[in-house]
Simulated assay, not measured.
Amino acid sequence: MKKLFQCIVIGLCLFQCEENSNEVSLANEKATFEAGELIKVTGIDYTKTPIYKKVQKHPESYEHLDKVDFYRIAYLSDGLLITGLMVAPKAEGSYPVIVYNRGGNRDLGRLLVATSVDVLSRFAAEGYVLVASNYRGNSSSEGTEEFGGSDVNDVINLINALQQIPKANPEKIGLLGLSRGGMMNYLTMKQGNLSQIKAAATIGGVVDLQITGKYHPEMTEVFNELIPDIEVDKVNVLRSRSATYWVNELPKNVPMMILHSKTDEHVSYEQIPPFLDSLTAYSVPFESVIYEDDTHGLINHQDEVFKKITKWFDRHLKQESL
C-alpha cells in the first residue's frame, strides 16, 4: 500500500511516477469514430513496459494487480481527440467510477502507464473503474491547454462517454483530484451540472489561484502562458478558476472530502480555511482532513489517506451494497 503515494515529485505534479520510468506513449492512432461512438479502449500489457521491473522487484506491493486490467483510452471532447487511461476490475460486473483528475500542467504530471500501475490500480482493486484524462494539448491530446478553461470540458465529456464502458456504472461517479486536479474537480461540479457525480475528494487541491501564485511564484508564469486573455482582467480570470469565490455555485448534494497539510509547500494552506468557511456558510456538505505537518501529497500519511478516500467513496458510491 505504501507504493500508492510515494510517486509524488516537487511541484504541482502529483503522482508523476519515477522520472523516465515509463516513457510509453499514450497516443492512439487517430481513428475515425463511428456515428455515436464516444470512446475507444485499447488494452495495455504493463509487463511490456519499464514499470514491470519495479513490480518484479517488489511483488509484495503489487499482489492486487492480478485483480485488474489496464487500458489506454481515446475519446472525443469538443471534436478533439483526447488521450487517457483506464483501469478496471477483471471480474465481470457493473462498478462505480472514480474520475482521477491529474495535477500539473502540460507534460508536468502527464499520465504514464506507471500511473495506472502505482496509483489507479489500487482503487480499481477495491471495486472501481478508474478513468483519467490527459486534458487537451497534452500527451498527444489535440487542442490547447487552458489550465481550467475549455479543458474542463475534457473531464465532463469523459464522464458523458462512460455510458459506453461496459463495466462502468455511469450513474455512480466520484471525482478524485490532486493539486490542479482539485481545481478541475470543482470546475467540473460547477459547470457540468452532472447528477451522476455523487462524491468528490481532493488532496492538496487549489481553490485560490491568487494565493497559489503568491506562495508558488513559478505558477504565475504557468497562468500567464496557459490561461487565455489573462492580461485583460487578471483578477477575475483567476477567480473564475478559484472555487473559494463561487462556493454558492457548487452542488449541495455532492459531499466532498478535502485533505490538506498545513505545511503544504506548493498549495499554501492559507487558502483552505476561507474555503471551508464558505462551504459551511452555503451548506455544501464536506469533511476536512487537515494534517499539521506533511508534504503537498500527504506522503507521510499515505496509507491513512488511501483508506480514508476509499472509505469515503465506498460510503457514497456503494450505498446500495452497504
Rank of each mutant, 00 (worst) to 15 (best):
M183F: 05
D151W: 07
I98K: 02
Q6K: 15
Y245L: 14
M257G: 03
C13P: 00
G127E: 05
Q302M: 11
D107R: 08
S61V: 00
S139V: 07
V289A: 04
D303N: 01
L187W: 03
E29N: 01
H216G: 06
I230H: 11
V119A: 09
A27H: 07
D233S: 15
S321P: 00
D66I: 10
G11A: 14
E18G: 15
G103V: 12
L112W: 13
Q164G: 01
I39Q: 09
I165R: 08
L111I: 10
A168V: 02
K30D: 04
A161T: 04
A88T: 08
V247Q: 07
N101V: 02
L279M: 15
G177D: 08
S240V: 08
L259C: 13
L108G: 09
G181I: 08
K90P: 06
L209M: 15
K53D: 15
D78P: 00
L187C: 11
L158W: 08
L112C: 06
Q164C: 00
P166W: 01
L4I: 13
Y71C: 04
S321M: 14
L298Q: 04
L12G: 15
L12P: 02
K198P: 08
G137N: 04
D66G: 04
F147K: 12
G84R: 01
V222K: 04
A31W: 02
